[in-house]
Lab assay of single mutants.
Amino acid sequence: TGQSYENMVTEIMSMGYEREQVIAALRASFNNPDRAVEYLLMGIP
C-alpha cells in the first residue's frame, strides 16, 4: 500500500540517504527494503 511504501522510504531515509536515492533503490529492488539498503551500500548493479 502507499502508506507502507512511505514508511519504508522514511525508514531508509533515516539511515542518512536522500529520498531520490531511496526511491531509485526501492524501484531497482522491486520494493524489497533489505535489498534496497544493500543497493544503497554497494551500488545498484
Rank of each mutant, 00 (worst) to 15 (best):
T1E: 11
T1R: 11
T1W: 06
T1F: 01
T1G: 12
T1L: 10
G2C: 11
G2S: 11
G2I: 15
G2D: 13
G2H: 07
Q3R: 14
Q3E: 15
Q3S: 14
S4F: 12
S4V: 08
S4H: 12
S4I: 14
S4R: 08
S4K: 12
Y5R: 06
Y5K: 07
Y5M: 11
Y5A: 07
Y5V: 08
Y5L: 06
E6H: 05
E6C: 05
E6W: 05
E6N: 09
E6T: 05
N7K: 12
N7Q: 11
N7E: 11
N7P: 06
N7R: 11
N7C: 07
M8E: 04
M8G: 02
M8Y: 09
M8Q: 10
M8I: 14
V9G: 00
V9P: 00
V9N: 00
T10R: 10
T10N: 10
T10D: 06
T10A: 09
T10S: 10
T10P: 05
T10L: 10
T10H: 12
T10V: 10
T10F: 13
E11P: 02
E11Q: 07
E11Y: 06
I12H: 01
I12S: 00
I12V: 02
I12F: 08
I12K: 00
I12M: 08
I12W: 02
M13Q: 04
M13C: 05
M13S: 09
M13V: 05
M15T: 09
M15I: 15
G16S: 14
G16D: 12
G16C: 14
Y17R: 01
Y17K: 00
Y17A: 02
Y17D: 01
Y17M: 05
Y17C: 01
Y17Q: 00
Y17F: 06
Y17G: 01
Y17T: 01
Y17W: 10
E18F: 04
E18P: 10
E18W: 00
E18H: 11
E18Y: 04
E18K: 08
E18V: 06
E18D: 11
E18R: 10
R19C: 04
R19Q: 06
R19Y: 05
R19N: 03
R19L: 02
R19V: 01
E20L: 07
E20A: 12
E20C: 09
E20R: 08
E20M: 06
Q21Y: 03
Q21M: 11
Q21W: 03
Q21H: 10
Q21T: 10
Q21C: 07
Q21I: 09
Q21F: 03
V22R: 00
V22M: 00
V22E: 02
V22Q: 03
V22S: 04
I23N: 06
I23W: 03
I23C: 07
I23A: 13
I23F: 07
I23Q: 12
I23E: 14
I23V: 12
I23G: 07
A24E: 13
A24V: 06
A24G: 11
A24L: 08
A25D: 01
A25T: 01
A25N: 02
A25P: 01
A25Q: 01
L26I: 00
L26K: 01
L26R: 01
L26W: 00
L26T: 00
R27Q: 13
R27P: 02
R27Y: 08
R27T: 14
R27F: 01
R27W: 03
R27L: 07
A28G: 05
A28M: 09
A28E: 15
A28F: 10
A28W: 07
A28Q: 10
A28I: 14
S29A: 10
S29M: 02
S29V: 04
S29W: 00
S29Q: 04
F30A: 15
F30C: 13
F30L: 13
F30Q: 14
F30E: 15
F30K: 14
F30N: 15
F30P: 06
N31M: 10
N31K: 03
N31S: 07
N31Q: 06
N31R: 04
N31T: 03
N32H: 05
N32Y: 05
N32Q: 10
N32V: 10
N32L: 03
P33W: 05
P33V: 11
P33Q: 11
P33E: 06
P33L: 08
P33T: 04
P33H: 14
D34G: 12
D34W: 03
D34Y: 03
D34C: 08
D34M: 10
R35V: 12
R35G: 12
R35L: 12
A36G: 01
A36M: 00
A36F: 01
A36E: 00
A36K: 03
A36N: 00
A36L: 00
V37D: 00
V37R: 15
V37A: 08
V37K: 15
V37Q: 12
E38L: 04
E38K: 14
E38R: 13
E38H: 04
E38M: 05
Y39T: 09
Y39D: 11
Y39H: 08
Y39E: 10
Y39L: 11
Y39M: 14
Y39F: 14
L40T: 01
L40G: 02
L40W: 00
L40E: 03
L40R: 01
L41Y: 10
L41T: 15
L41Q: 15
L41V: 11
L41I: 08
L41E: 15
L41C: 09
M42S: 14
M42G: 14
M42T: 13
M42N: 14
M42F: 09
M42I: 05
G43N: 15
G43Y: 05
G43T: 14
G43S: 12
G43E: 13
G43W: 07
G43D: 11
G43P: 08
G43V: 06
I44D: 15
I44S: 14
I44M: 14
I44F: 09
P45Q: 09
P45A: 14
P45S: 11
P45W: 03
